[in-house]
Structure formats: structure tokens, C-alpha cells
Design a protein around this nucleic acid. Structure first.
Length: 610
DNA sequence: CTAAATACTTAGGACCTCGATG
DNA sequence: CATCGAGGTCCTAAGTATTTAG
């Protein structure tokens, strides 16, 4: 790991490097200005007409965010709270609730056992949730059906319950067709109607989509409360199909400042609670009924509060860069420890560092899909090969990770690691924990001792960013043109996504779009051979005639061939790029792992910034 | 110590928009 | 003008990490 090649280091003056979204990699495209314009609306300072009190002693920190007319708030140039306080003033209008249920028109019917059956409103609503999902494969799964039916029956009247006892006898097809027709109709709406909806959305956004936090108007991320529906977990989720209930104001806790204008619950309702906790960043919360966990309304990533956190994350990763060699030496030493817990800890840390595995908190069994991370790996998730494909000491990983995405990898490891793994697996069943003396809490406590603020996930951030930096350096050729450089960028990005195992389902249109591209390529090839033929005959012609005109013609044809060759190459590059990206998702790493400063530095270095 | 509660980040997929292309 | 594919936004589930309670 060489140091100091310019980007991923941490000198003082970094402070002045903006890390605002204009510097995100995606912006290489020329769309800078348009974006900037669009963003303007949301970053706006709110005029200090806002009372903004609660700033006892407040004058000194957070200096009154400049009223420069050109307005984009540079929060990163201001002081931060250091005392656990997250804000001094917070005002908002509360969340937007899901629209009430609209009963089906009377000509849309439900049938039970072939006979028309009129459902009560409550039962009908839940039935429509199922009807809307009929096309999805998961409605055919037994667990989904079982959970759905159980919860549906809870919403039924006793008469309904008495009759409707078997999901297989339920016929939702009219409902399903009705909804399909509805969404079709929506697509066919006139321009004016669409415009109207857009305007209404904008109005709601302006009213509820922003809050005032410490003098600034900031965008709220999820101000719309999740509507009721059927829960769909990812992977083999034991709770799939359960009814996610409707959230009412009585379920919602509001958080704001005491001296703000409080949000008003919808007429005739009350909030569950209003509190004034400025040690947290959320504006509202409620408890969800599937897992019993709390959901929060929070600010958008464009906000100061998210931005600062994000920045800190990368600063921590940079600090890790400075001591990572030491930490690596240490865990390698620990492979030899007499203590089992230390050996396990050091091997786990090695995986987290080398393979960018997640920490792997333990989870409650039966509550979620069976997935694991590093510390929760079980014996059944790895296989050891003394020798495989010409390499020694190979570990094969095969386990479901976050979101039930499969992690599959064959990795040659050092002999000591290999021997340790053998030891950890001795006398264990496949379903036993590989690291039985370790969990994330123990690991993080240890990491905390190695470096302030160090936790397992910092390694992912660090390794992702450093990989991007190295790959950019390795893959970019200064001589190449812009599309080639962008391809290099994508490849570097791809290396990171592979490291972090960011996968996606191949797009539904993938095969078709690939075919389309291939036929374009074929057409281009035909065009090329045609052009070559013409060039040849022009040459022959020129040889015979030996005049200026025919020489010119040769030149023209030559140029044409060159141009077509270039176009062909471009298409082929595009095909490669797309094929390589088939199952790889670049978005997540771009958004969460790659320090924007690396991309910015690269863009400047290769003069890709306008 | 363990378990539960809490707060926050990271994640993939659906859907929508918009510009390129034919 | 229609199509289509890339990329953005929205949605909300699924993680991590810390704190609190027992």
C-alpha cells in the first residue's frame, strides 16, 4: 500500500476542499450547471426572519451563515457542534400521512369459491394489497400466503371469517384487472392532467418537505409516512406477506424545538407525543408492526447534518490509512496468540480488511432472513482447500450477506490463517459459529483501542476508497480521449463494487438491449466492409487515372473508413462496459463508499472538469 | 455479561424522466 | 415523432454501532 500519491491523504488544507455534491463522480458528465440550478431551491438559506432562538451563548459558534446573495450554504466552512448537540432550533410541519383507503367501485367484485362475496371495507382494503401483487412471484410462496391470510383474517368481520377459510378459494382477479387498468389509465393521462399532479406534488413538497434547522431551510428525506401494505422482506423472510398496518397520528412521536411553531396533527387527531430532544436528528418517529422497530423521519443527504456525518466518515477512513500498516502487523502477530479469542479476533479482522466483509451482528432467529457477516459466519459458510487451481491454502466463502445477496469467493490465504481456520472448525457442526469467541461488540471494542473512532465498517470505507484511487491511477491513460477515460473510471468503480459485493439483478431488459446493441455493431461492421470495398476500388481507380480528383476520392474514403472504425470501436467498448456491468451495481459504492475528493482530484488531474 | 432499545447508515429494486438516436 | 436505455429519485428493508436496562 504505497502512500502519498496525491489523493487519499489528509493534509490540513483539505478543509477547503468542497465535498458538496457537485463533486460527485457522476458529475463528470457535462450536466453541471443544470444540476446546480436545480439544487438551488433546496439548499437555500432561510432568511433570519425566522426567530431562531435557543441560541443561548449561541452567537459564538455557527456564525450566522452568510447572507451572500448567491446563497448556497457552505456549512462545511463552519464550526461543528462538539458536545453531542445536533441542533438548536428545529421547526417542521410533521409528516404526510398515506391517503385514506378508496373503496373499490361496485362493479369490481371479489369471489369466494366461485360465488360473489361483498367484503367489508377493512377486509377489502387488505384484499386489494394482495390483488396488487398477484403478478409477483412471491405471492405464490407458501410463507407469504400463510402470513397474509392470517393477518387478513384479523381484519375480517366474524361473518367473513366464518366463510373465508381458504385462500385458494379466493378470486382476486377482478380487483387485479381493475388496478392494471388504473395504472394504464394513469399512463395515458393527458399532459395537462399530469402537469396538475406534478404541481400538487410540488405544493406538498414545499409545505411538508422542508424544515428549518438552525436558520436554514433543509430538505426532509422521507416526509411521507409509509403507506399500509403487505410486507415484503428480502430473501427468505419468515415474515413476508404480513400486513403492514396503517400509521395514524396517534402512533407518531414528533421531535422539534420547544420554541418552534409545532406541527399540527390532522384535524380530530393527536400526536402520540411531542418531545424536544436536540441530541438526535430525527423529526418524527413511529414503531413499525412487523419487527417492532422504530422508523424515523430524517433529513435529506443534502442537509448539513447528513453532510457533516458523511465527511467525518471519510476523515476517519483517512486516519485509518495512517495506521493501517501497524494494525495489519498487529493482527498478523495475533494469529499466533495463545488465546483463542485473540486468534479468532485477528482472523476475523483479516477477513474484514482483506475482503471488505461486513461486521456481522447477530440477529434474532426467526425474525429475519438468515444472513450473516464476518463475525456471524458459520462453519457451513466456508470450505478449506489445501490446494486448489494451483494455489495453496484456499478458502471458499459461500454465504448469504446483507439483503440475502450471495457472497461467493475463493481466496488464497496465508498458511497461519488457514491453520487457524482448521482449528476453529474442529469438532464443530456445520451450523456452529466459526468464531465462537467473538462478536461485533468485542471486535469493535478492540478496534476502538487501536484507533479513535475505528469500527469494522471503517475498513470497508477505507478499502473501497483506496481501491478506487489505485485503480484510477492504474487504469487511466492520460493520452486517451474522454470516453476512454470515463470507461477507466467505470472500471475502477467496478473494482470497488466487486470488492464490496454490490450486486444487482440483471436488468429485465438486459438481453434485449444487448441484442439491440449487437445488431448495431453488426450493422456497423457491414458498413465498414462496404466502406473498405469502396476505398479499394477508389484506390484502383486512382492508380489507373492518376489525377487529382481520384486521389482526393481516395482520401475521402480513407477518412470514412477511419470514422466508421472509430464508431465501431466505441460501440464495442460500450458493449463490453455493459456486459461487465450486468450484475454489478455501481451506485451504492458511489453513494456511500467513495470519498468524493478522490474523484474530484482525478477529474482535475485529467482535466475533465469544465 | 446479555438483551433490548435506539439511532443512524447502507442497500437493492421499482419507477420515472429525459436526452440520444433512428 | 417514437423508442429506449441510462441514470436519477423514491421507497423502505436491512444492516452497523452505541446506549440502556436487567
Amino acid at each position: 500500500m504505497e502512500h502519498n500519491d496525491g489523493f487519499y491523504h489528509s493534509p490540513k488544507h483539505e478543509k477547503s476542499l468542497k465535498r458538496d455534491s457537485e463533486f460527485k463522480p457522476k458529475k463528470i458528465k457535462v450536466e453541471n450547471d443544470k444540476k446546480a440550478k436545480k439544487r438551488k431551491g433546496e439548499g437555500e438559506d432561510v432568511k433570519p426572519k425566522k426567530k431562531q432562538k435557543g441560541k443561548d451563548a449561541g452567537g459564538d459558534r455557527r456564525k450566522k451563515a452568510k447572507e451572500e446573495p448567491e446563497d448556497k450554504w457552505k456549512w462545511w466552512e463552519e464550526e461543528r457542534y462538539t458536545d453531542g448537540q445536533k441542533w438548536k432550533f428545529l421547526e417542521h410541519k410533521g409528516p404526510v400521512f398515506a391517503p385514506p383507503y378508496e373503496p373499490l367501485p361496485s362493479n369490481v367484485n371479489f369471489y369466494y369459491d366461485g360465488k360473489l362475496f361483498k367484503l367489508s371495507l377493512e377486509a377489502e382494503e387488505v384484499a386489494t394489497f394482495f390483488a396488487k401483487m398477484l403478478d409477483h412471484e412471491y405471492t405464490t410462496k407458501e410463507i407469504f400466503q400463510k402470513n397474509f391470510f392470517k393477518d387478513w383474517r384479523k381484519e375480517m368481520t366474524s361473518e367473513e371469517k366464518a366463510v373465508i377459510t381458504d385462500l385458494k378459494k379466493c378470486d382476486f382477479t377482478e380487483m387485479s384487472q381493475y388496478f392494471k387498468a388504473q395504472s394504464e389509465a394513469k399512463k395515458q393521462m393527458s399532459k395537462e392532467e399530469k402537469q396538475k399532479i406534478k404541481e400538487e406534488n410540488e405544493r406538498v413538497l414545499q409545505e411538508y418537505g422542508f424544515c428549518i434547522m438552525d436558520n436554514h431551510r433543509e430538505r426532509i428525506a422521507n416526509f411521507r409516512i409509509e403507506p399500509p401494505g403487505l410486507f415484503r422482506g428480502r430473501g427468505d423472510h419468515p415474515k413476508m406477506g404480513m400486513l403492514k398496518r396503517r400509521i395514524r397520528p396517534e402512533d407518531v412521536i414528533i421531535n422539534c424545538s420547544k420554541d418552534s411553531k409545532h406541527p399540527r396533527p390532522p384535524p380530530g387527531t393527536k400526536w402520540k407525543e411531542v418531545r424536544y430532544d436536540n441530541k438526535v436528528t430525527w423529526l418524527a418517529s413511529w414503531t413499525e408492526n412487523i419487527q417492532g422497530s422504530i422508523k424515523y423521519v430524517m433529513l435529506n443527504s443534502s442537509s448539513r447534518i447528513k453532510g457533516e456525518k458523511d465527511w467525518q466518515k471519510y476523515e476517519t477512513a483517512r486516519r485509518l490509512k495512517k495506521c493501517v500498516d501497524q494494525i495489519r502487523n498487529q493482527y498478523r502477530e495475533d494469529w499466533k496468540s495463545k488465546e483463542m479469542r485473540i486468534r479468532q479476533r485477528s482472523v476475523a479482522l483479516y477477513f474484514i480488511d482483506k475482503l471488505a466483509l461486513r461486521a456481522g451482528n447477530e440477529k434474532e432467529e426467526g425474525e429475519t432472513a438468515d444472513t450473516v457477516g464476518c463475525c456471524s459466519l458459520r462453519v457451513e459458510h466456508i470450505r478449506l482447500f489445501p490446494e486448489l487451481d494451483g494455489q495453496e491454502y484456499v478458502v471458499e466463502f459461500d454465504f448469504p450477506g446483507k439483503d440475502s445477496i450471495r457472497y461467493y469467493n475463493k481466496v488464497p490465504v496465508e498458511k497461519r490463517v488457514y491453520k487457524n481456520l482448521q482449528l476453529f472448525m474442529e469438532n464443530k457442526q456445520p451450523e456452529d459459529d466459526l468464531f465462537d469467541r467473538l462478536n461485533t461488540s468485542i471486535l469493535n471494542k478492540h478496534l476502538q483501542e487501536l484507533m479513535d473512532g475505528l469500527t469494522a465498517k471503517v475498513f470497508r470505507t477505507y478499502n473501497a476508497s483506496i481501491t478506487l484511487q489505485q485503480q484510477l491511477k492504474e487504469l487511466t491513460n492520460p493520452e486517451e480521449n474522454v470516453p476512454a477515460k470515463i470507461l477507466s473510471y467505470n472500471r475502477a468503480n467496478r473494482a470497488v463494487a466487486i470488492l464490496c459485493n454490490h450486486q444487482r439483478a440483471p436488468p429485465k431488459t438486459f438481453e434485449k438491449s444487448m441484442q439491440n446493441l449487437q445488431s448495431k455493431i453488426d450493422a456497423k461492421k457491414d458498413q465498414l466492409s462496404e466502406a473498405k470495398r469502396e476505398l479499394k476500388s477508389a484506390k484502383a481507380d486512382a492508380k489507373v487515372r492518376r489525377d487529382e480528383k481520384s486521389k482526393k476520392a481516395v482520401e475521402t474514403k480513407k477518412k470514412a473508413v477511419q470514422r466508421i472504425e472509430e464508431q465501431l470501436m466505441k460501440l464495442e467498448v460500450q458493449a463490453t462496459d455493459r456486459e461487465e456491468n450486468k450484475q454489478i451495481a455501481l451506485g451504492t459504492s458511489k453513494l456511500n463508499y467513495l470519498d468524493p475528493r478522490i474523484s474530484v482530484a482525478w477529474e482535475y488531474h485529467h482535466k475533465l472538469v469544465i
